[in-house]
């Protein structure tokens, strides 16, 4: 495993853990889109179906379990925890995320590395991950609430995307037969959408700057 991949995994892991820890500590999820978090939970659940069928390394297995556990915990907090769910911007978080799922599923049925259940689910998870940030983007534009979407979360997600792209470039040039078009293209789309998210974040941050008091 190269350094880019490892750093990509770590920043991805920290982005999820920082969010979970924040929700757990301040008992608030204001500014966080439940729709996006639910999509991420579906992404992990469908991608890691191979947990029980293919063993790659202890590292991979542990990471998969941690990603699954932490993203499901975030969803649980936002839906079930009596204090946290009160802070949820339900009326603003109106993106109809179910409409993202069906097109991704159809695309996965049409474009996959092999037409098997596991491979279709894997492709589905990649397509869904690419667009999962959309509800969060819409919520951010609506509420301009950047209190909880701290610089850390934005920075970590951005670092994760960048490191993974560097990892793909590195592997392409150092390994024989390392070609994953589906992963690359959906990863690129995801990074572009993330760039949008990044842009709005800083835009909101700049505009709210004067109103914010030191914490």
């Amino acid at each position: 495993m190269n350094m880019f991949r490892f750093l990509g995994d770590m920043t991805h892991l920290f982005s999820v853990l920082v969010l979970l820890l924040k929700i757990h500590t301040i008992k608030s999820c204001a500014g966080i889109s439940l729709k996006t978090q639910e999509l991420y939970a579906i992404v992990f659940a469908t991608r890691y179906l191979d947990l029980f069928t293919d063993y790659i390394s202890l590292y991979n297995t542990v990471m998969k379990l941690v990603y699954l556990g932490s993203s499901l915990s975030i969803v649980w907090y936002m839906r079930r925890h009596k204090l946290v769910r009160r802070s949820y911007d339900k009326d603003q978080d109106t993106f109809r995320h179910h409409f993202l799922i069906l097109p991704c599923l159809i695309l996965a049925l049409l474009i996959n590395e092999k037409f098997t259940f596991m491979e279709v689910m894997w492709a589905f998870s990649l397509y869904l991950e690419a667009v999962a940030i959309l509800p969060q983007l819409v919520l951010l534009q609506r509420t301009r609430n950047i209190d909880n979407l701290t610089g850390q979360y934005v920075f970590l997600l951005g670092a994760y995307r960048s490191f993974y792209i560097l990892n793909w470039i590195y592997r392409y040039f150092t390994e024989v037969h390392y070609v994953h078009w589906i992963t690359w293209i959906s990863g690129l789309v995801q990074t572009l959408l993330y760039g949008d998210f990044f842009y709005y974040y800083f835009h909101s941050w700049k505009n709210n700057e004067k109103l914010q008091l030191p914490a």
Partner: peptide, 10 residues
């Protein structure tokens, strides 16, 4: 190999 390669990334 080729089709249905083992996915070793997360």
């Amino acid at each position: 190999q080729g089709q249905g390669k083992l996915h070793d990334e997360l």
